[in-house]
Amino acid sequence: MTTPAPRETFALSVNGRVEQTDVSPDKPLLWVLRDELDLKGSKYGCGRALCGACTVHVDGQPTRACVTPVKAVAGKSVTTIEALSETELGARVQRAWTSLNVPQCGYCQSGQIMAVVALLKAIPAPTDPQIDEALSGNICRCGMYPRIRKAVHELAAGGFA
């Protein structure tokens, strides 16, 4: 096991703001967001890109922040759950989530919502297989998958505007 590389200064674009951080380039984005920038909406669930609880957008693409070294996002635009309600689609997804009682424990939902927003941006009316392909990387241990699927379909049909 090698120890992490020494600190460097990175200018990160997070939620539309440029943030200066002085961290090891190997430090995963998740821990930079949570512990340097105090954005704790993105969650730790597995540390190995297996559960999706840490999902953020990097240049619009859903990305597992727990395995993304911060050096990999230099010069790119990072969006987290905290900024999602500022977009129309993000706010709609959040309304769908509250209206349909999608969260139970809620711990995975930041990641689920980030994945769903990316899905609906890329495919405004996804089929069930497309939902499976987009969201099967996000584990919900409370098992709210049927509600997530329902919410996606209702959003695709124009709901929660």
Binding site: E82, C105, Q109
Partner: peptide, 8 residues
């Protein structure tokens, strides 16, 4: 508790 479980 839905709202605070959807906005992080």
């Amino acid at each position: 508790d839905a709202r605070e479980k959807t906005d992080g």
